[in-house]
Simulated assay, not measured.
Amino acid sequence: MKVNFYTSQREYNEKKAEFDKAIFDVIEKGSFILGPNVTKFEEEIKNYTGAKHAIGVASGTDALVIASHILGFTDGKEVITSPFTFLASTSCIAKHNAKPVFVDIDEETFEINTSKLEEKITSNTAGIIPIHLFSQMNNMDKIMEIASKNDLRVLEDAAEAFGMRWKGNGDSYKHSGTIGDFGIFSFFPTKTLGAYGDGGMIVTNNDDLAQKTKMFRVHGASKKYHYDYIGYNSRLDSIQAAVLSVKLKYIDEAIKKRETIANWYMDKLSDCEYVRFPKIKGDQKPVYYVFNILAEKRDELADFLKENEIGYSIYYPIPLHLQKCFSYLGHKKGDFPVSEKISSEILALPIYPEITEEEVDFVCETIKKFYRK
């Protein structure tokens, strides 16, 4: 049996008529950039997340770069983040000549270790970029408390966290991205809410930040050909917005199915002593965008899955402090031991709403077969 790590075809075939109509309506109307479909989708995101403002941009990476620029993560300022993440979470700092300052992760959740945040704050620290990875959010109570006490800006990298909500010590659940000064989402096709191409969104509850963001995404223009800033050309296109509006109607159903699939994995692998699962911490509503395990002999297991036509991914094989592009920061192996340890053990298994229990059974049996060899 072949099990893809991800496929878009099943969802498309299930809702083909809706997707086709949404796409061809855009083509027939001829409004392709920042048209009514984008405005409609931005309103839908505001309604779903509770954010006061939602501004569509070309990708999650662009969202990080633009938000970092607006928050002043520039010109030698220090910004605290995690080394265990995708490049864009840190390249957005370096792009503006700011300095990434890494804090190691919690071994059980893979989120930034908030107990170590304050020791990295200096008089030059401008902000914090917490990254809500894989299935859960960071401890936003602690992060916002530290940020408030030290007058720091917070940019939530919620690229993988659409649908996740944090309550913590609060009175109600707050959607990822809506707690800090800015939050960003990625609509890369594999995401929980994924487009048929690239797309991103910046959310904020601050009127001034929202207005500035709207200008920054169109070259810094306050109106056509009137430029207040040196901005960017980064706009969510109308076809992607139309596709995402269709998908957003079914997002709660998709999130629930992901939870069911995650529970299948945990139940079926519970008797495998060579596999461990991350833990969810804090009062929050997780979303299983990715299903990770920590596996003994990870690389050999990955090869065995490949031999048996099972897709997988490794998020992330090399922490950012050991990547060549960040060698100028002067870090060495051993500086962030938890990130380095997890990067040698972590393995992501196939999870998307349309995967079948039979396929999950096959994945789990193949993993157990490997360890019985």
Rank of each mutant, 00 (worst) to 15 (best):
N292R: 01
K52L: 10
E359F: 13
L34D: 15
E107L: 03
V243F: 08
V57C: 02
M137G: 01
I184G: 02
I355E: 01
V338N: 05
D252M: 11
G170T: 12
E28Y: 10
I184V: 13
L133P: 00
E11A: 01
Y196N: 00
K120T: 05
K285D: 14
Q323L: 09
A348K: 05
Y328W: 12
S68F: 12
D181C: 11
I70W: 08
V243A: 08
M144E: 10
Q284T: 02
N13E: 12
S344I: 10
D157P: 06
T122S: 14
D208V: 00
V38F: 12
N292K: 00
P278D: 11
S68T: 09
P353C: 15
G30A: 04
P317Y: 07
S344R: 05
G72V: 00
F182K: 02
M164F: 08
N292A: 11
P286S: 00
V3P: 02
S31I: 08
L347R: 06
S82K: 00
N97P: 05
S245F: 05
R235A: 03
I367Y: 08
K149G: 07
N4H: 09
F102K: 01
L193I: 06
L349I: 08
H219E: 09
A54G: 09
I346Y: 09
G76M: 10
K174S: 13
D283E: 15
F162Y: 12
H69Q: 12
D208Q: 00
I23M: 12
V218N: 00
N47F: 06
L244W: 02
V79D: 04
P353Q: 07
L71Y: 11
R10Y: 10
F73C: 08
I105T: 03
F291G: 06
D361Q: 09
I23C: 06
I121V: 09
S8P: 04
D25R: 01
F370M: 02
Y225L: 14
Y229D: 04
F86A: 06
V57T: 06
L209W: 06
I128P: 12
K268L: 14
E43S: 03
S82C: 13
D75H: 14
I143P: 06
L193E: 01
A63K: 01
T192C: 04
A22I: 14
T213L: 12
H219L: 15
D283S: 03
A158M: 05
V154A: 11
N113A: 13
V275S: 03
K15R: 12
W264A: 05
D181M: 08
I367K: 01
L34Y: 08
D181Q: 09
R372S: 04
I255N: 09
L349M: 07
F187L: 04
I179M: 02
M164Y: 05
M164W: 04
Y315R: 03
V287F: 01
K167F: 09
Y227P: 14
N308M: 11
S148E: 14
F370T: 06
G282N: 13
Y289R: 00
R298A: 04
E354M: 10
E358A: 02
S327N: 10
A241Y: 06
G330N: 13
P319T: 04
K249G: 09
D181Y: 03
T61R: 15
T7W: 13
S222V: 14
A126D: 07
I80L: 15
A348L: 10
S135Q: 15
D271R: 11
V101Y: 06
L294G: 10
W264G: 01
K214M: 15
K95V: 07
K21M: 13
A195I: 00
Q211W: 13
H96A: 02
P189N: 12
V154I: 07
